[in-house]
Design a protein around this nucleic acid. Structure first.
Lengths: 347, 347
DNA sequence: CCCTCCATTGGGAGCGCTCTCAACCCGCCC
DNA sequence: GGGCGGGTTGAGAGCGCTCCCAATGGAGGG
């Protein structure tokens, strides 16, 4: 690849001239070469190589109205993204899939409650062909924004009903949180545990509520005092565990709605000299990479293929974009990915 | 903001017509309004609002030759990005700074060794005005790539001398790793420890080597057997600690080159019934958010302002871009950010 | 009162590319 | 042998915007 002295990039015109063809033919070759006779194709290809021609993206976008880029919107102003490998893994999956389809990833981090305007403007501004969004909280304006922007969007995680802008269903990819939770609680039940507590996540996140629903599916008559609320963090898990132990000292199992809270709970149990899994069996959720394996004992937990979810999101969006080009702008269907039980030592 | 029915976005032409001015004047107003009389400015602004006009980015880029976007290249094909909050925090800082300057962030994750070609093509393709890169390993082709692409770039972390493409110094932002390490080791020495071991990071990362140098600055005559190599992961820290304990059972302090390895070391020490900090004092590095505070005992460590480093990188790059526009294409100077000792319970 | 000058404004030329459409050329069939 | 059709190719018109340059008009000085 020849070096680029800035501001002197060869144009299609130059390639055409060098190959002795018209700009139109050069363009055809650059875009796949269909309908151009072999010798000409070769000539143009050679000219491209010699000149180090790289198509001007802006010019192309101007006429095709496709940017070849997709926005990833993360509406999480706060700290969670730092400590949570969840996002990184989804992004890795998204990136892989987009790269494979020559599509760029524009990252939009929401910098605060007032920042949605900026996001809306950007999405409406024709900078990107579509959006992948992580909208975790029920009060989130994102679904409404993407709908208004008139570009296809796929969500990571089921948006809450209240955030859903009416008739148009918002396509999303989510793990089978409820089913996973059932798996976890059923294991504890099968183990013969009789007072199974639950540390649930924040009520404004659908994943937390779905997991709670799964717990209730298996234990419809559970003592309400056996449920404590956390915030998906280690600290909050510890607090919730303390609370549970005060309310129901006789509990013999805990299902925590994620591994972070499970590890917080584990710390409290250890501090009190309560043995895991002998006295209290513990199950987490997420199978989060370093956390679940590194605790002592390692966590029994529910695995979800996070990277796979990212790939799937990208694939759904790319599909919608392709269909959009073909004319029929159908929105993709949502997908729920399966979860599996990973048995380690904590239960 | 009016809704967008796709494919029918108003153009500058439409705004001009509605405001009763020429396209040129409308353009001036949209771009700040300098040199346009107040009443006309107001008319155009009103037309913009009524029509919901949003400038076409591609058209603008085509003529200005500025994309208003910056690439963030992460040349870390593997798992580290998942468990390491480091990147997320830098990106958060970068995002804040870029957003404040109306610049977009295009994320480029290197998907494997063969993927550098794609990155090179992208950076050379006029998609972005500049690049922020994280090039962690000495064998990294990134500095060469950005140089060839002819766009300004700023690195996160000092590139190794071997990766540096010759005369042109590569501008970077890095923590004062060496100074931080000195702080850590000096503390241990001041505490009266006499056999201070070091768990260093992988030799192909300059941060690891700088921290090792800092250790040696304070302990030039240290027993080589007191140095063990890890890979910046929890597991490798545990292994290194085991090794050290075999080689020098009498060691009374450990400086680990990051908190992850420190926590691995801590686990081994606890398993062996060695008390921290009484028998062995332990210092980490990074002050990594959940890790350092959550260990038992909490880690004494070296803090670096990671988000600040990200902001700084972005600021340097934006500065270079502005200067580039002004004509004088000077590369920014590198910056070393200071580190501070955070005293907790492990030393 | 006329001329000069500066502050505004508008006209128009492109930025580099795609895409429609007409022109062309060849082989084939009647 | 002439006409027709399909496969190739080229010419030209924009995509929406910025920016150069010329035109305009009013203020101020002589």
């Amino acid at each position: 690849m020849p070096e680029q002295s800035p501001g002197s990039r060869p144009t299609l015109e130059a390639v055409a001239a060098r190959a002795g063809v018209s700009r139109a033919t050069a363009s055809r070759v650059v875009n796949g070469g269909d309908g151009v006779r072999k010798p000409l194709v070769d000539k143009v290809r050679a000219a491209v190589d010699e000149l180090g021609y790289i198509p001007n993206h802006a010019a192309r976008t101007l006429v095709t109205r496709r940017t070849g880029a997709v926005a990833v919107v993360i509406a999480e102003p706060e700290i969670r993204i730092f400590s949570d490998p969840f996002f990184s893994q989804q992004i890795r999956g998204i990136s892989k899939e987009l790269t494979a389809h020559d599509t760029q990833l524009v990252l939009l981090l929401v910098e605060g409650p007032g920042d949605f305007d900026r996001i809306a403007r950007y999405l409406s501004g024709g900078h990107v062909d579509g959006a992948l969004a992580f909208s975790l909280h029920t009060d989130d304006a994102l679904p409404e924004i993407t709908r208004r922007a008139g570009i296809p969007a796929v969500y990571g995680g089921r948006p809450s009903p209240t955030a859903d802008p009416g008739d148009q269903a918002v396509p999303f990819v989510d793990a089978d949180n409820r089913g996973g939770a059932r798996l976890a609680v059923r294991l504890l039940k099968d183990l013969g545990r009789e007072r199974i507590a639950h540390i649930c996540g924040p009520p404004d996140q659908t994943s937390a509520m779905d997991r709670l629903d799964g717990y209730r599916d298996v234990l419809p008559d559970a003592d309400p005092a056996l449920i404590a609320e956390g915030a998906f963090t280690v600290e909050s898990g510890a607090r919730a565990m303390t609370e549970l132990l005060e309310r129901r000292p006789g509990l013999d199992a805990v299902f925590a709605a994620n591994d972070l809270m499970a590890s917080g709970a584990l710390r409290v149990l250890r501090e009190r000299g309560i043995s895991v899994p002998e006295q209290v069996a513990l199950v987490g959720f997420d199978d989060m990479d370093p956390v679940a394996k590194e605790t002592d004992p390692p966590l029994t937990t529910i695995n979800q293929d996070i990277e796979g979810q990212g790939r799937l999101m990208a694939r759904l969006l790319l599909g919608a974009l392709d269909r959009g080009r073909a004319g029929s702008g159908t929105t993709p269907a949502s997908v729920i990915t399966s979860t599996t039980l990973v048995r380690r030592a904590s239960a």
